[in-house]
């Protein structure tokens, strides 16, 4: 089973990397960019029987730091 875990910064947490990317895009001449937030994508291949609870446990214990980050689990196939 292919899993994608999307990790993103919580609302209200300043994102220095997103801001730098934003400035760099504007430096390249792209305009009309309102905001940029940078996150992380983790792709996993797990045994078919892996439960949702186990996947969420992985996110809470390691893949995301819930002080600053949210996570979303996507089952690809």
């Amino acid at each position: 089973m292919k899993i994608r875990v999307h990790v993103s910064l919580k609302n209200g947490v300043l994102d220095p990397q997103g801001r730098a990317i934003h400035h760099a895009l504007e430096g390249l001449g792209f305009d009309g960019i309102n905001d940029v937030r940078a996150g992380r994508l983790i792709e996993m291949d797990v045994a078919d029987g892996t439960t949702d609870a186990a996947l969420e446990d992985m996110c809470r214990k390691l893949l995301a730091n819930q002080v600053i980050e949210n996570f979303r689990i996507e089952k690809v196939a």
């Binding site: 947490v13 300043l14 220095p16 990397q17 730098a20 730091n65 002080v67 600053i68």
Partner: peptide
């Protein structure tokens, strides 16, 4: 220590990058 839960909060990328 923050990642281990012994201290609150988190340390993020410096604001000035």
């Amino acid at each position: 220590l923050t990642e281990a839960g012994l201290l609150p909060g988190a340390l993020m990328r410096n604001a000035g990058i």
